[in-house]
Design a protein around this nucleic acid. Structure first.
Length: 499
RNA sequence: GCCGCCAUCGUCUAGUGGUUAGGACAUCAGGUUUUCAUCCUGAAAACCGGGGUUCGAUUCCCCGUGGCGGUGCCA
C-alpha cells in the first residue's frame, strides 16, 4: 500500500453538515498536499434512512465549495461502485471468507430478545452487551434454522480476553479491554452490511491509506482494527479529528443551530470564508497568519498539525472572515452574487434578457447602478443577505423618518432648514455631466470652509435627507448614485419636513 | 453505570522544564476633519484542582473534577 489515497465517506442525509465540511476539507487538503487522491464514497447501508436526491445535493454543495474528487459516484473510477448499496455482492463475497475462517457467526436472536436482554443488564447495572448466545451453535442447527427461514444476522467474534491496542496518529496508542468489546453485527438481517463492515471492506478494496474522520469513531477503532486482522489486511493510518461543538458546548444539532452548509450559503456566506473558518477549527500554521487562500492552505496544511481538543463553533469569527472576504471580492462578481438577494427582497426583478427592473417604480436600472450601490456597501456587509437591508433607500424613495433625525447632535433644530437650503443651492449649480462624488464634495466642502462652518451641520442633515437613516454611507457617495434630480428631490422633501 | 477522548484569555488557538505566556475574533477606549462601516493605535482578558518528578513546572507523570463522545440489525 504505497499510494496515498484519502476518502470522504458521508451517509446521504440530504445536506452537508457543517462539521462534515471540516472532515472533507482536511481530507482534501491532505490529499492535495501529499499528492494523493481523494475518493468520495456514499455510505447508504441504512435503507431506512435514505433521502431522495441526497447524493446530488451533496455533490452540488461540494462543488460550490470547490472541493473536488478524483473518484466517486459522479465521476467514476477504477474502484467503483462508489455507493455502498450497489456493492452488496462484494460484501457477500467477503463475509463468506470470514465465515470460512471462523471469524464470524450466524446469530438468530430476535430484536425483542436483545431488547429484553439489555433491559435485564441495565437493571443489574451491567454494561449492555450481546451475551454471545449464538456464538457456538452447531453447523447442523444453523443450517436447519436457515432452512426454516429464520432471520439472522452475522456477528464478529471478538477476543474473549486480553486487550486491543490501536493507534490514532494524532493521539498515539489507545488501549481497549477485549471484555469491553461486543460481538457486533456485520451483516444485518436484510442482508445489508453495517457501517463497521462495509467501511473496512471498502477502505481496503479502495486502497485507502489514510482515514481522516471524526472523533466519534474512536470507540469503534478496535472493532475496525480487529476486522482488518481477521481478513489479514493491513490497516490504514487513522486520524480522528476533534468534534465541533455549539456555543453552549453541546452537539451541533439541527434543532438549535444551522448545521447545513446549504443554510450558510443561503444566508450569504462565501465558500472562501466557510473554508477559512473551518480549517482554523483544530488546525493552524506555524506562524500567526489566519487568512489563507486555497493555494496557501494546500501548501501549508499538515495532518500532524491537527489538534485534539474539541472546538466551539463561533459564528462571530465566521462573520468577521466572511466580511473580510466580501471586502476583498471582485466588484463585478460581488454584484452578481448580491442580485439574488435584492431580488428576493423584492427590490428588483430580472427578466431572462438580463434586464433589471426596479420593483418600486417599475423603471429599468442598469447593472452598473447596482454595482455602484454594492461598491459603497461592500465594507458594511458581513453576509450577502445584508445587502437588501443596507441598500433599500437606493431603490425606494418612499421611505419615512422622524424629522428630528435631520438634526445633527451639535446643532439647533432651527438651523437645519437653512443649511439644507444652502446644500440644495450648491448642488443645483453642479451641471449634470459633472455630477460626481468628488465634485459634490468639492462644492460643499469649499463653501463650508470659506464660511468657517461646521461640516456636520451640512453633511448630517444631507445624509439623512438622502438615506432616512442614522447610519449610512457618506452623503457624496449616495448623491452620486442617486443622481442630481433624485438628490435634489430628497433634499427638498427634507426641508419641508423640518420647516 | 461502564469504556474512551479532551482540558491555555468569553471563543479559535500559539508556546516552553526557567517567556513580560504570543496572535486572531468578540469586548472596551482613542484616532482617521457628519453617522455607520472600513482602517490604525491602545486596554482589559487565560495556563481546571490536588499530589508527585525536578533546583524549578502551564509544560512530564498520577489522581480528581469538568466537558464531550461511545455504549444500536444508525452512520
Amino acid at each position: 500500500m504505497d499510494k496515498i489515497r484519502f476518502r470522504f465517506a458521508p451517509s446521504p442525509t440530504g445536506f452537508l453538515h457543517i462539521g462534515s465540511l471540516r472532515t472533507v476539507l482536511f481530507n482534501y487538503l491532505a490529499a492535495k498536499k501529499m499528492g494523493g487522491k481523494l475518493i468520495l464514497r456514499i455510505e447508504d447501508t441504512d435503507q431506512k434512512r435514505k433521502v431522495a436526491g441526497a447524493v446530488d445535493s451533496l455533490i452540488k454543495i461540494l462543488d460550490w465549495l470547490d472541493i473536488t474528487f478524483d473518484e466517486g459516484p459522479h465521476i467514476g473510477g477504477d474502484f467503483g461502485p462508489y455507493i455502498q448499496s450497489e456493492r452488496k455482492e462484494i460484501y457477500n463475497k467477503y463475509i463468506k471468507k470470514l465465515i470460512e475462517k471462523g471469524e464470524v457467526y450466524y446469530c438468530f436472536c430476535t430484536p425483542e430478545r436483545l431488547e429484553e436482554m439489555r433491559k435485564e443488564q441495565a437493571a443489574k447495572k451491567m454494561p449492555p452487551r450481546y451475551d454471545r448466545k449464538c456464538r457456538d451453535l452447531s453447523l447442523e442447527e444453523i443450517e436447519e434454522r436457515i432452512k426454516k427461514g429464520e432471520k439472522f444476522v452475522i456477528r464478529q467474534k471478538m477476543p474473549l480476553e486480553g486487550e486491543v491496542i490501536v493507534k490514532d496518529e494524532l493521539r498515539g496508542e489507545i488501549k481497549f479491554k477485549a471484555s469491553e468489546l461486543e460481538d457486533h453485527v456485520l451483516i444485518k438481517s436484510d442482508g445489508m452490511p453495517t457501517y463497521q463492515f462495509a467501511n473496512v471492506v471498502d477502505d481496503h478494496l479502495m486502497q485507502i491509506s489514510h482515514v481522516v474522520r471524526g472523533e466519534e469513531w474512536i470507540p469503534s477503532l478496535p472493532k475496525n482494527v480487529l476486522l482488518y486482522k481477521a481478513f489479514d489486511w493491513e490497516s490504514p493510518k487513522f486520524y480522528h479529528m476533534p468534534l465541533t461543538l455549539n456555543k453552549e458546548g453541546g452537539k451541533l444539532s439541527k434543532r438549535h443551530n444551522d448545521v447545513a452548509v446549504e443554510d450558510y450559503k443561503k444566508q450569504g456566506y462565501l465558500p472562501e470564508a466557510l473554508i477559512n473558518f473551518s480549517v482554523l477549527l483544530g488546525w493552524h500554521p506555524k506562524d500567526d497568519r489566519e487568512i489563507f487562500s486555497r493555494e496557501e492552505l494546500v501548501k501549508e496544511f499538515k495532518l500532524e498539525d491537527i489538534g485534539t481538543s474539541p472546538a466551539i463553533f463561533d459564528i462571530e469569527k465566521l462573520n468577521y472572515l466572511n466580511g473580510y472576504y466580501i471586502r476583498h471580492k471582485d466588484l463585478d462578481e460581488l454584484t452578481r452574487l448580491c442580485l439574488p438577494y435584492l431580488e428576493k427582497a423584492g427590490f428588483i426583478k430580472r427578466d431572462n434578457k438580463e434586464k433589471i427592473i426596479n420593483q418600486f417604480n417599475s423603471k429599468e436600472i442598469s447593472f452598473d447602478f447596482i454595482k455602484k450601490v454594492v461598491r459603497i456597501e461592500q465594507e458594511r456587509m458581513k453576509k450577502l443577505s445584508e445587502i437588501s437591508q443596507l441598500s433599500e433607500f437606493f431603490f425606494n424613495d418612499n421611505f419615512d423618518y422622524e424629522a428630528g433625525l435631520l438634526v445633527w447632535k451639535k446643532m439647533e433644530r432651527g438651523d437645519v432648514a437653512p443649511r439644507l437650503q444652502k446644500v440644495y443651492e450648491l448642488l443645483d449649480k453642479i451641471p449634470e455631466e459633472n455630477w460626481t462624488n468628488d465634485s459634490i464634495e468639492d462644492a460643499l466642502v469649499s463653501y463650508i470652509q470659506a464660511t468657517e462652518g461646521r461640516v456636520g451641520e451640512y453633511l448630517w442633515p444631507m445624509r439623512v435627507a438622502l438615506s432616512g437613516r442614522k447610519a449610512s454611507p457618506p452623503p457624496f457617495d449616495i448623491a452620486e448614485i442617486l443622481g442630481k434630480k433624485e438628490t435634489l428631490k430628497r433634499i427638498e422633501r427634507a426641508i419641508k419636513k423640518i420647516s
